[in-house]
Design a protein around this nucleic acid. Structure first.
Lengths: 231, 231
DNA sequence: CACCTATGAATTGTCGACATTCCACAATTG
DNA sequence: CAATTGTGGAATGTCGACAATTCATAGGTG
């Protein structure tokens, strides 16, 4: 194949990022989502359209649509003619979230064992976790942990699983922001990862499944049921 | 606790359903959803807000919100400033839908075995399937099959699983409406259900899991990859 | 005094109009 | 004639105003 010769103009340097046109509803949704996931907007908090519209200096339409986006994410619920609020988080929901996550990750491991997939990314994220643990950098540890699990799910090569996992993980973010942190404990749990990768590399299906299963359960247990119930 | 004595007015007979105030967006969403799930709106069909608004005699706002609801259902996708369309259905998506369904149903069986749950509803739906098969009533067979699986998931007593399963089943509805039906085959597959219930009743976990797993895989295979690709 | 009934504030629901963006295609230019 | 540049139509994106609904509360009524 021959590259067509450049026209009159010189070729554009490709490090000039295109101006992205982000709709207001998306900007609003992103801001609200991050507020919810960081715990700044606690479960039960009422979201009044007019107030948000005035505060953000946009009309109500994008606010409404943004809130609907968050409803899709399962972070907000609407009560007709009464109001919308950040979805309350019950102990039961927390437990269900983690148990479904376990099923997702086990499914991913199964598929990886069946289809085979390069494990480089997993090794790398294990290294990152080690470094973070040594540096006592809690935030980096959490980030590397998420990256590990994200990579694991991606290796399963299943778009629907990936989308479902991401959606579920939103709530896990929220839970992590609301619980009482016990950093020492998590650092310990982080050590579970290398054996999982090893089992995958060994092709030992049952061991890999057991390890990932135990690990996600440990993460669930790590989060005490101390979610402060709003109202 | 003492029941307060009825006031002057006689008590209302409670079989008079309250007039539910269904927002337009919900009505629109329901109509569009049923059109998509029944196959009348095929994947790839463009959904133009102005056209729909005029056709249904409402303004564009509820149309937009309805379409966003369908986006949450995963039935519609938006391309900014270009339009919205019924999400195309690829062979891969079909396969992924069924494989995720399998995982959900296996999870349900596991939980039922762990927690125990009355199986009456399952027996009942098996009977309905038998009756429908004998009467050669295909639609009733399909309905009873869905009722069976719905009941199975509900018995797992896991709200998040139930919601996820329902959402997934929307796409299964759509797939079933679009594929070439082979009724004989399905009637045969329907016979798989009683052994599943039997295994549950026997408390034979591994057998129950294997049976439900094989069954959902059979359903997936039953749907040939003859989904007609739009465009 | 217990119960019904109006009234009003707060909030969401709906509407029509205008702004913005994208795409296809014609017009232009060397 | 090929590449670029205008241009118009079609669609979504956003806005402000008004309608409908709910709930709480105050007032009426036997």
């Amino acid at each position: 194949m021959i590259t067509p010769k450049p026209a009159l103009a010189h070729p554009m340097p490709d490090d000039i990022a295109p101006i992205e046109n982000v709709p207001l509803r998306v900007q609003v949704a992103d801001r609200l989502r991050s507020a919810i996931l960081s715990g700044r907007l606690r479960p039960g908090t009422g979201l009044v359209e007019t107030a948000l519209a005035e505060q953000m200096n946009v009309s109500r339409a994008p606010i409404r649509e943004a809130i609907q986006i968050l409803e899709n994410d399962g972070l907000v619920e609407t009560i007709a003619y009464k109001g919308k609020r950040v979805k309350p988080l019950t102990a039961r929901e927390v437990a269900e979230t983690y148990s479904l996550r376990e099923v997702f990750e086990v499914m991913a491991v199964r598929r990886i064992m069946e289809n085979g997939a390069p494990l480089d990314a997993l090794y790398q994220h294990c290294d990152e976790m080690n470094a973070a643990a040594k540096a006592d950098d809690f935030a980096a540890l959490v980030a590397a942990d998420e990256a590990f699990h994200h990579a694991l799910i991606r290796l399963a090569d299943h778009d629907l699983l990936l989308a479902s996992w991401k959606n579920l993980y939103l709530r896990i973010h929220q839970i992590m922001a609301l619980r009482n942190r016990d950093e020492r404990n998590l650092a310990e749990v982080a050590g579970n990862h290398p054996p999982i990768v090893q089992a995958l590399a060994d092709g030992d299906r049952d061991r890999a499944i057991k390890l990932i299963s135990d690990h996600t359960r440990a993460l669930a247990a790590f989060d005490p049921a101390t979610i402060v119930q709003a109202l």
